[in-house]
Amino acid sequence: MVDSRDDLSARLVRVASKLAVAASSPGEPVMFGADSHRFRIGPVLTEDEVVAFETRHGVGLPPDYRGFITTVGHGGPGPFGGAGPFYGLLAIEDWEWTLQGDPDATMLARPFATEPGRVYENWLAEAAPDEDDEPFRGTLVLSHQGCGDLSLLILTGPARGRVVDTSPGKHGPHFTADPDFLSWYERWLDAVLVGDRHFR
């Protein structure tokens, strides 16, 4: 039987290695948004820092994301963070960028109501039926795509651990095909390393 912790460790090592290759590639980056961070990422967070964040918000981070920010890196030098999809990977302190209302300490612990595969007639009305409801509760912002669109990590709810892209309209956010954060991030790195200009 394979220990899932060993599997996660191997994935993190592989991702860190691919990131190092991307950062050492000569010439100007061609991937959209990479000119702002140039594949550099900020220092890792300590275990104490992560526990403090989880305690403050009453939520546990998905293991792969938690592993990434404690062993690979966190945030970074660009105006929108460090090496990551679109304009870069935001720092965990920027978790509330997508909220439509004022953030509070319980927002991340409240389940994100949207589910993959479900068809919504009017997503906003169903996800936040009351005037004071926050449709993006239970999510942490990962990256800014431009034009107001964001990539989010779901921390709480039926799709915990998945990455979702915000989008306007009645159908609501779009779930990526990736099963978790690390798969999404590594897919971006793979696109970078083959010279793609855009990531979707």
Rank of each mutant, 00 (worst) to 15 (best):
E126W: 00
A127I: 06
G73K: 06
P116F: 13
W123V: 09
Y65A: 11
L89K: 01
T98N: 08
P103D: 09
R66H: 15
Q100E: 12
A113F: 05
T106V: 09
D104L: 10
G88Q: 05
L124I: 15
E121G: 09
P129R: 04
D64A: 12
A128D: 10
L90P: 04
R66C: 13
N122G: 03
A105S: 15
H74K: 01
E96S: 10
L124D: 11
P129V: 05
D64S: 15
A109M: 07
G101Y: 02
V72A: 03
L90Q: 08
Q100R: 13
H74M: 01
A127H: 01
P63E: 15
D104E: 15
A91M: 05
T70C: 13
G82E: 02
F80R: 07
D102W: 10
G67Y: 12
G101E: 03
L99F: 13
F68I: 10
G76M: 02
V119E: 14
A83R: 02
E115N: 06
P116A: 13
W97K: 03
T114F: 07
V72F: 09
F112H: 15
F86H: 06
P77V: 02
V119I: 14
E93T: 13
L99I: 07
A127S: 10
T98E: 01
R110L: 14
F86G: 00
T114C: 12
L108N: 10
E121H: 04
P79C: 00
R110C: 02
Y120C: 09
